[in-house]
Design a protein around this nucleic acid. Structure first.
Lengths: 199, 199
DNA sequence: ATGGATTTATGATCAAGATCATAAAGCTAG
DNA sequence: CTAGCTTTATGATCTTGATCATAAATCCAT
């Protein structure tokens, strides 16, 4: 989102997180802007029984957790490193100042929020009205488009998500995902080559 | 969001819609900025079997359907008048020009998108991991806070939503909502006075 | 006022996906 | 190399919310 030079000049620092480490917790106040430099960060919720829902997975260059900086509310979810990661951290004040001084960057964030809203609108509607197979295809297509935007729709994309992650992204259980994926393979909607899913 | 005077000066026109009439359809390109002047507009999706999911309900002063104006994608849902309504309509170009010339208004929209993202993050997590009663309370509390922000949390708020609307907002069926509401009343979480719900 | 539409209500039954149990295959840190 | 995680896999059973059927109460337009 923001390039490294600008981040450094604005006073951002690069923080390291070990796999499984938490960056911030649901319900706390947002003080920083975060942007992934290396690794993978997920935002998630746990219900009382420990069932997880993954709000999003963020990779290199992607920012996350900004919405509470723009409006007055607490984090709606946790942030946690999926693998060892490095993340830019910039204070709320400096971040907002940077936006004020750079209308184009500001607009870029507005546009990013809009895209994320689009993704959420689709997922919430999918989860509330669609069947497992339908939901899974949606997520796969979303990741395909997002992680490899220039891919031709005909070419196969290797899904770098575990069955469990697919479950936590779609609100299903891992067994249901495993069984649905098999059915989808039989229907020719995707490919499984030694346990990896291709779409 | 934007005051009437500014809307008029920017070239907005006031359009009337009858109850049930559609303003735009899922999958089409966004050409206008919309803001409710009077009445009530909902954005929704229908699945193949006709089951509805309500993305949001927008009342006086609220804007809706802006996200696709900021980023390059089609409408993720339909917009439909719940009751007879009047809606400001402003072309995309004029809207974006207005934002460019008024950084404060631009920031206000960024902030609005952030809030909406917060709501969606909560709902998608609720729907994917929580039980009917929990989901319903969330929606009720959201509407309470949103439609009557200065209300003290102790005072009761009259819910102006039908059981069917509650179902379509939470991804449940109307019978489940009716039964859950009754249980919630028994537990003292809400009140039912001649069929109206108070929270 | 009244007849049709909408909303709320309730009981019976069903089915999809969750849950539980178990295991094999694959990966990884020491 | 190997012990212990992690991930994938599969069958059996259960449970919750969906579905189906029916009806009463309320609203509303003419």
């Amino acid at each position: 989102m923001i390039d490294n030079e600008k981040l450094l000049n604005s006073g951002a620092v690069l923080k390291k997180y070990k796999r499984g480490e938490q960056l911030f917790e649901e319900g706390t106040i947002a003080r920083y802007y975060y942007q992934v430099h290396a690794g993978e960060i997920k935002m998630n919720n746990y219900n009382e029984e420990g069932k997880e829902y993954i709000q999003g997975i963020f990779v290199k260059e992607k920012s996350f957790g900004e919405p509470p900086l723009f409006s007055d509310f607490k984090y709606p979810a946790n942030a946690e490193a999926i693998i060892d990661s490095e993340v830019w951290q910039l204070s709320k004040e400096k971040f907002l100042k940077l936006l004020e001084e750079n209308p184009k960057i500001h607009y870029k964030f507005t546009s990013t929020l809009a895209s994320r809203l689009y993704y959420k609108a689709i997922m919430v509607s999918e989860i509330s009205t669609q069947e497992p197979e339908h939901r899974i295809l949606r997520i796969l297509d979303y990741f395909k488009k997002n992680n490899d935007p220039q891919i031709t729709s005909s070419k196969t994309y290797k899904v770098e998500l575990t069955r469990q992650q697919l479950a936590d992204l779609t609100g299903l259980r891992v067994e249901t995902v495993i069984r649905s994926i098999k059915k989808l393979e039989q229907k020719g909607e995707l490919l499984i080559k030694n346990r990896k899913v291709y779409r």
